[in-house]
Design a protein around this nucleic acid. Structure first.
Length: 468
RNA sequence: GGGGCCGUAGGGUAGCCUGGUCUAUCCUCCCAGCUUGGGGUGCUGGUGACCUGAGUUCAAAUCUCAGCGGCCCCA
């Protein structure tokens, strides 16, 4: 059942964060939230995954300070122009005013790059690939939403690289895109990869590649960005290296990041009217064991349940021994998205079997006691695959090819996202926006076609949809 | 950026318009005891709330203003 999930998504989403104990939204500062232990474990598992992917791709983790002095923050004109309305400033230390105002990082370029300028001296120091996982602050004026638009982003996974040539930086953009593909694939989050329009790119970047997903309400959510910074920041921050020939040259840089939104997507895309349905990859508990007690046979069932838990110790498994009826436990764990439930009762013991129940389909599976571990492993893999497949199908069902302005209008009106041939001009984007209420959010390579506004031939398609 | 609505136990609500009858309603959660046990067991008892500040008034959950917080619509 996905009625509420689909038709009252906003409500559904807020309710799950609370009921599944992901976040406490009652913290009394707007746009900031408390991670509860269960949510925090999901977050930790997601971080483990991204760290693994970035490490394997040759990045090293580091950690830069939260505070950025005003003069560094203001160095790159376009960068500050893009962020200055959203910056929190620390102006006092105790009661005395600071001589130099300190920005709480809205992103870390200006914290890192003065130091990278010191670290990078020769071509032998390149390429340099680092990342950090930090909180960042933005004074959002639009409607804040847990994990989607927050004033304190708690889990910004930002990578920064420096290269000796434009070509190498360009290759790194592709590497980053591949890393993120792997990451989202592992989480079963479907995505559209596009280039942001000129007027929508990261402040200070040459260009920006973005990953978007589509929520059940038909709205686009940006879940990752990859920027080619060219030499824009290296010129500003004097990040130079000595070439093999002995010249000094500015480094070529990229940066890319993913915020808490990946967790918003993870939770939002895999749920149903009964609650969350977590990807086995990151679920805090992959298997919950529910003993079915009867008066005289409680000890016997408990012994068997404990044996099962031991046998499944290679998974994240939990034995629920609370004094509740089995049904109450089923609801409890379904809400929290545990992918697989194991039931063990007198009937199972007699038949030397175990009952499995899948969270995604609700299917009950009776397996021989001896085949349990193997079957659990198989089912968990199958659940992950099914969730990924379902999410991709769901997203595709909300994408509409549009050959004309009216098609875009219709698609957006029906809570869908339109893909339409577009010449790339600001004028045509404005016409689209005038008709559909939203402009072009991203650009993709496509078969040759004619711009839906001006009719000029183009090899690009614009993504048009309401967004978060 | 513009406009509107709202804030009552942990969560959801009634009461507010027309100030007193509020020792503040109901559901849920929580706690204790008994009971029950293959999809939210039942019974009994219990804990727990008027966002903050200022004002009007004999009297404020109720009216006014401000702050903080939440929600919605439009750009």
């Amino acid at each position: 059942m996905r009625d509420r999930w689909r038709n009252s998504f906003s409500e559904w989403y807020a309710e799950q964060l609370d009921r599944a104990e992901i976040l406490d939204v009652r913290y009394p500062v707007k746009g900031t939230y408390v991670w509860r232990p269960y949510g925090f474990r999901i977050r930790a598992n997601v971080l483990k995954l991204i760290r693994q992917i970035l490490d394997e791709a040759g990045h090293e983790e580091a950690l830069f300070p939260l505070l950025i002095p005003e003069h560094e923050f203001a160095k790159e004109a376009r960068h500050i122009a893009g962020f200055e309305d959203e910056v929190y400033w620390v102006t006092h230390g105790g009661r005395s005013e600071l001589g130099v105002k300190l920005a709480l990082r809205p992103t870390s370029e200006t914290a890192m790059y003065p130091i990278l300028a010191l670290w990078i001296r020769s071509h032998a120091d390149l390429p340099l690939k680092i990342y950090q996982v930090v909180n960042t602050f933005r004074y959002e004026t639009k409607h804040t939403r847990p994990l989607i638009r927050m004033r304190e982003i708690t889990t910004f996974k930002e990578a920064h690289t420096a290269h000796a040539s434009a070509e190498d930086a360009e290759r790194q953009v592709q590497v980053a895109v591949e890393c993120y593909r792997r990451f989202f694939d592992a989480l079963g989050i479907p995505y559209i990869i596009s280039r942001r329009p000129e007027w929508d790119k990261f402040p200070g970047a040459e260009y920006t590649i973005a990953f978007d997903t589509i929520f059940p309400d038909g709205r686009l959510l940006q879940i990752a960005t990859v920027h080619n910074l060219g030499q824009n920041f290296s010129r500003t921050f004097e990040i130079t290296f000595e070439t093999p020939e002995g010249r000094q040259e500015y480094a070529y840089q990229t940066c890319y990041g993913i915020s808490d939104r990946v967790i918003a997507a993870l939770l939002a895309l895999h749920g149903d009217d009964s609650g969350l349905c977590l990807m086995p990859e990151v679920a805090p508990l992959q298997v919950v064991v529910v003993p079915i007690w009867f008066k005289e046979r409680k000890e016997e069932v408990d012994r068997e349940a404990e044996a099962i838990v031991r046998e499944l110790s290679c998974f994240r498994v939990h034995l629920d021994t609370r004094e509740l009826r089995p049904g109450a436990k089923y609801y409890h764990w379904e809400l929290r998205g545990v992918p697989l439930r194991v039931e063990i009762g007198p009937r199972d013991i007699e038949n030397r079997q175990v009952t499995l129940v899948r969270r995604d389909t609700g299917e009950r599976i009776t397996v021989a006691r001896s085949a349990l571990r193997q079957e659990v492993e198989r089912q968990l893999r199958s659940i992950g695959d099914a969730l990924r497949e379902r999410a991709w199908q769901e997203m595709r069902s909300m994408l509409r090819e549009a050959g004309a302005l009216e098609d875009i209008e219709k698609a957006v009106g029906e809570r869908c996202v339109a893909l339409a041939p577009w010449c790339g001009s600001k004028e045509c984007d404005e016409t689209i926006e005038a008709h559909a209420g939203v402009g072009v959010g991203g650009v993709m390579e496509a078969e040759p076609g004619r711009c839906v506004v001006c009719g000029r031939s183009t090899k690009h398609r614009g993504i048009v949809g309401r967004s978060y």
